[in-house]
Design a protein around this nucleic acid. Sequence first.
DNA 1: GATGAATGAGCCTTCATTCAT
DNA 2: TATGAATGAAGGCTCATTCAT
Lengths: 208, 208, 208, 208
Amino acid sequence: MAKQIEGVYEKLFQCAKKEFLEKGFKDASLRVIAQEAGTSTGSIYTRFNDKEGLFDAIVNPVVEEMKERFFTVLDNFEQVDDSRKEELMPEYSCRGMQELLDFIYEHFDEFRLLLDASYGTRFQNFMDALIESEVSSTYRYMKVIGCESVTSGTVTEEFIHIVTSAYFTGMFEVVRHNMPKPDAEHYIGLLVKYHMAGFDTIFFPDKY
Amino acid sequence: MAKQIEGVYEKLFQCAKKEFLEKGFKDASLRVIAQEAGTSTGSIYTRFNDKEGLFDAIVNPVVEEMKERFFTVLDNFEQVDDSRKEELMPEYSCRGMQELLDFIYEHFDEFRLLLDASYGTRFQNFMDALIESEVSSTYRYMKVIGCESVTSGTVTEEFIHIVTSAYFTGMFEVVRHNMPKPDAEHYIGLLVKYHMAGFDTIFFPDKY
Amino acid sequence: MAKQIEGVYEKLFQCAKKEFLEKGFKDASLRVIAQEAGTSTGSIYTRFNDKEGLFDAIVNPVVEEMKERFFTVLDNFEQVDDSRKEELMPEYSCRGMQELLDFIYEHFDEFRLLLDASYGTRFQNFMDALIESEVSSTYRYMKVIGCESVTSGTVTEEFIHIVTSAYFTGMFEVVRHNMPKPDAEHYIGLLVKYHMAGFDTIFFPDKY
Amino acid sequence: MAKQIEGVYEKLFQCAKKEFLEKGFKDASLRVIAQEAGTSTGSIYTRFNDKEGLFDAIVNPVVEEMKERFFTVLDNFEQVDDSRKEELMPEYSCRGMQELLDFIYEHFDEFRLLLDASYGTRFQNFMDALIESEVSSTYRYMKVIGCESVTSGTVTEEFIHIVTSAYFTGMFEVVRHNMPKPDAEHYIGLLVKYHMAGFDTIFFPDKY
DNA sequence: GATGAATGAGCCTTCATTCAT
DNA sequence: TATGAATGAAGGCTCATTCAT
C-alpha cells in the first residue's frame, strides 16, 4: 500500500487556510490551493475527501476542543451546589471568558475562518450554536436560582439569546479586528463588566 | 411607445428577493430568478442593468432612507446644547432605538438581505459602516461631556466599537430570528436598559 | 400613413458612421447607435432594414458612384483607337489616379469604412473587386497592344493582379494614415511614377 | 501521472485553425472548435489557457521565427560596410524576399490567419509592424548612402511606408490567393524587379 | 411610423469532482 | 497513492431582431 507523501497534508492545510481566509469557502478554488501547495487537486480528495472536508480538517478540531472546554466549564458550574451558584457565578463567568480569549488567540485563524469564511459549510452557524449552548445553560441557571424576572416570564430564553449574542459578538470583535492580545485582554475585561452590569440590571432589578 | 410588461418588475423583484435570501448574492442565479419570474434573463438587464443592480434595487432605497433617518437623529442630538446632552442622552438613545426597530420591521426582508446575503455587493460592510457612524458620534459625545474614562485614555474608540457592535448585534438578532414585532419591542426595550447599564458602568464608574 | 421624423435618418447615419469606424461592422452595436442618435433601435429597422442595411446606406452610394466613374474611365480608354492606346495610357492612368484620389478625399470616411471596417458585410472584398476590374481592363489592354511578355505567357493576369494590388494598397495607405490631402497628392504623384516605372520594367523590358 | 489524451491537442489545433480561418478570431466559437475536435471546452483551457492563447499557439511560433529571420537579414545588411551597401543592396533584397516567400509557404495557414483573421488579437497589427521595421531599416539605409531625394526632403519616411506597404501587399497577395508555390516564386521574382525599378525611379532619378 | 422591452441563443470562462494512467 | 486532464453544467452578460403598444 503506497503511502501518502509526507508534508503534503500540512502544505495543503496551510495553503487552504490562506485561500479560505482570503476568499471565503465558496469563492476559494481547490485548483489554486493545490497549485500553491505544489501538489494536485487529487491530493486533496485523497486526504480530505472533498472541499468541505478540507475546511473541516482545518476548523473542526478547534471547534471540537472548544466545545469540550466550553462544556467542561458549563458542566463544572452545573455541578456546583445550587446554593452557591449565584455567589460563584461572576468568577466562573469571568474566568470562562478569559479562557475563551486565550483559546481564541491560540487559534486565531481558525476563528476568523469560522466567523467570516464559513458560509456554505456546516459551520456557517457555528457562532449561533455556541451561543445557543451558553443561552440554555444560562437559562437553566436562572431558573435554578429562582430569578424572578425569569420565573415571572418577563424575561425569556429568547431574550437571553439576544443578550448573549451581543456579548459574544463583542468578544469576537477582537478577532475580526486582529487586535494584539494585550489590548484584547483589556477590552474583554471591560466587556465582561459591561455585560454583567447590564445583565444584572435586567435580571435582578431589585438587587440594589 | 414600448412599455415594460406590467408586473414583471415586481415579479422579478420578489423572486430575486427570495433567491437572494435563500442563497446569498453570490450564489443566486439570474437564470433561476428570471425563470421563476416567468421571464427572460434579458428582462433583468432591461430593468436592473446587472446582477448587482438587482440587489441594489431591493436594498438601496432602504439603506438610503435608513441613513437619512439615522443621521437626522445623530445630527439632532449633536445640536443639543452641550450642557444638556448628558441629561437628554437616555431619551434620545431610547427613542432612536425604538425608531430603528420600527424601521426594521417595515423593511424586514431588506435587513435580512443586508445582514446575511450581501457578501459580494457594495453593501457587504453595511453594518460595519452603520456601527462606525454610531461609534464616532458616541465618541464625540463622550469627549464633549468630559467623560473621565475617555479623557484619561482608559477607554478608547476601539472599545466603544466593541460595545456598539455588541449592542447592534443584539438589535439585529430580532431580524435574524424572525421575531414577531411585539416580542421584539419588548426585548429591545430591555436591551436598551442592558446596554445603558453596562455602558455607564464602564464609562461612568463613579456615577453611583 | 405616418411620416418618418425628419432628421433622424441623418442622425442615425452619422452616428452609425462613427460607431462603425470605431469598432468595425461586427463589433458595432445598434443599441449604441440608436442611443447616440437619440432614437430607438426600431428606427433603424424602419429606415435601413437591418444592421447590414445601415452599413450599406452609408457606403454603397459611394461604391456605386465610384464604380460608375471608374468604369467610365475604363470605358473611355477602351474606346480609344487601339493604335493610340499605348501613347495615351500614361496620361489616362495618371489622370485616373488623380481623380480617384479626389474622389477618396470627398468620401474619406466611407473609404475608411470600406477598407478597415467592412468585415462581415458584402463589402468585405470591395478592394479585391475594384482591383479585379482594373486588372482585367489592364490585361485586355496589354493584349491589344500586343505586349510581348503577355502574349508569350511570361506574365499572366494573376501577376497583374499582384502588381495592381500593390499599387492600390499604396494608394489607400493615405486613407489609412489620415494624411492631409496635399501630402497625399504629392505621394500619389510619386507612387504613380513608381508604379509605371516598375510596370514598364516587367512588361516592356525591351523598351529602353 | 495524468496525461493529456494524445491527439487532442493536434485535433484542437487543427479545428481551431479551420474555425479561425473561416470566421476570424472574434467570430470563431470555442464551443464549435471543441465539438468539432470531439472534446470539451475545458480541454481548450487546459491546453491553451484561453481563446487568445489558442490563436497564439497557432500563430506565435511562426511570428517569432519570422521576426528572428527577418531581423537577422536586416542586421546582416546593417553590418555591411557602408561603402558597399549600395552595391550589395539588390542581392540582399532579392534573397530576403526569396527567403520570406519560402518561409510563408512553409506556414501558409498561419500567414492567412495573420493577414485576415487576427482582428481582436495582439497580432492584428502584425503586418503593419513588419512593414514598419522594413521602412525604418530602409530609411536608415537611404540616409547612409546619402540618397539625395531623402536628404533633400523630397521623399520622406512616410512615402517609404507607402511604397513598402505596396510591396509587401503584393508579396502577401500570393497567400491570399492560395497560389501554387512555383507560380508564386515566379511572380515574386517579377515583383522584386518591379519594386526595384519603381524604387530607383523615385529615389535615384539621376541614376540613368 | 415610433418605441424600446422581450427574447433566448450565444459568448467566454470557471469550477468541483472524477478517473485513467 | 499521485496526478492533473477531462468533464460539462453553470455562471453573468450581450446582441440583433421582433413586435405589441
